[in-house]
Design a protein around this nucleic acid. Structure first.
Lengths: 123, 123
DNA sequence: CCGGCAGTTCGACGATTGTTGAACTATGGA
DNA sequence: TCCATAGTTCAACAATCGTCGAACTGCCGG
């Protein structure tokens, strides 16, 4: 389902999220669901200047983490869940040397990586 | 298990990962498992200058994504899986307005968010 | 066609980031 | 004690980032 990321795309996505306003913005859209939110409402909720918001929205769009669509005079933004999932998977890829996994959470101490788990004395 | 993140800690973690060398470094450690790798071997594998590597290692340590321990003259670095998991959970928190979830992967089109899934016509 | 609202684009500024090489600290062996 | 190895710290530099205000574009109502 989600397209695999190469290193550069992953860096772009992470850089897009590595900023207070954009992280709050992205999470707002993740929580808003596929219906998304118009730019104006986002600006209001995050108390950000329109021009600044536009800048951040563009970064997230460029990173592929959100998408834009028009509804009358408003521009609606919504989270791109597949891109988010691809990023999560990329970060945890081959966790502890295992073969590919699809669900990213990884906890060696709890048996995520049987081969190496014994070497982690609950530290 | 994993400590919840506040916004600033999340931004720090994401910023730490939003750089080619550091992302490669982190993934290398994730794949290396809890045993970790000495700085020298990391430098060799990533073909990075020692002083530059030190800089990046420090950022990841500061972000809480990796930890350092000494073994003789070597400094061994290993991934902090709980921090990584906390970050993944933070990103997907309240996905589509749902209550907390523990496994981060989120796909509205596939029923992750029943209430809103119908509004996404396979677009 | 005109006014105005929703959002974006632009240029300029200060702040932060990543790199490099040289000097420094710490550990282990002889 | 002296030396070599493993890694870190420091200062300086170019490059990139985030913010601001002002000007701009696109869309709708009348």
């Amino acid at each position: 389902m989600e397209t695999d990321l190469d290193e550069k795309r992953a860096v772009t996505a992470l850089a897009a999220l590595a900023q207070e306003t954009r992280l709050a913005l992205f999470r707002l859209l993740v929580q808003a669901g596929p219906a998304g939110l118009p730019a104006g409402m986002i600006a209001e909720r995050l108390a950000v200047q329109p021009s600044s918001l536009s800048f951040h929205l563009a970064q997230l769009v460029h990173a592929g983490l959100i998408t834009q669509r028009r509804a009358g005079r408003q521009l609606i933004y919504s989270a791109e869940y597949s891109a988010m999932n691809a990023l999560l998977v990329y970060l945890t890829e081959n966790c502890c040397g295992r073969d590919a996994i699809s669900a990213p959470l990884c906890d060696p101490a709890a048996g995520c990586c049987p081969a190496t788990a014994a070497k982690t004395p609950a530290a």
